[in-house]
């Protein structure tokens, strides 16, 4: 499994996968994609990097503990629901903000997107912590 080829390719593969996961996350509202699937892609990237480079390396690269990342995700998702408190609408109402950019295009920001980012972080955190725990176990054997 842990061949030279794999170890050489893994960092680039992982970087590409994380990039792709963000793309999938952001196109999610109106097209296939979204936080859950994006989070799974990113978690697989982390798992692949972990197999190639070792779990310690991954933990160093991640800076934050995966579970803390999941906590941030839950927090963001809940906050997305509370935004509607300010417009006197029920919990979790989708609110949209359209920003005109200088080149004339439009940037849509919304609470569903914030919610999806929260889901993304929860999935990345939870799945990668499980994957890393299993890999760590494999290493110490």
């Amino acid at each position: 499994m842990n061949t030279v080829i794999f170890r050489t390719v893994a960092p680039y593969l992982a970087a590409l996968m994380v990039l792709f996961s963000v793309f999938v996350l952001l196109r999610g509202h109106n097209e296939p994609g979204g936080g859950f699937i994006g989070g799974l892609i990113a978690a697989s990237a982390i798992a692949i990097y972990g197999i190639a480079a070792g779990v310690d390396e991954v933990r160093k690269a991640l800076v934050f503990h995966p579970i803390a990342v999941a906590g941030l995700g839950v927090f963001l998702a809940a906050i997305a629901g509370f935004m509607s408190l300010f417009v006197e609408a029920p919990f979790l109402k989708g609110l949209w903000l359209f920003l005109e950019l200088s080149d004339g295009s439009e940037l849509a920001l919304s609470t569903p997107m914030l919610f999806d980012i929260g889901v993304y972080l929860v999935v990345v955190g939870a799945i990668s912590s499980i994957a890393l725990a299993l890999e760590e176990d494999e290493e110490t054997r």
Partner: peptide, 20 residues
């Protein structure tokens, strides 16, 4: 699917640990 997947992952890890 999402819930089932996460619970399955948890049970898998749990069973593995219990086996060890």
């Amino acid at each position: 699917i999402v819930i089932g997947f996460s619970l399955f992952a948890f049970l898998l890890v749990l069973t593995y640990r219990a086996y060890q």
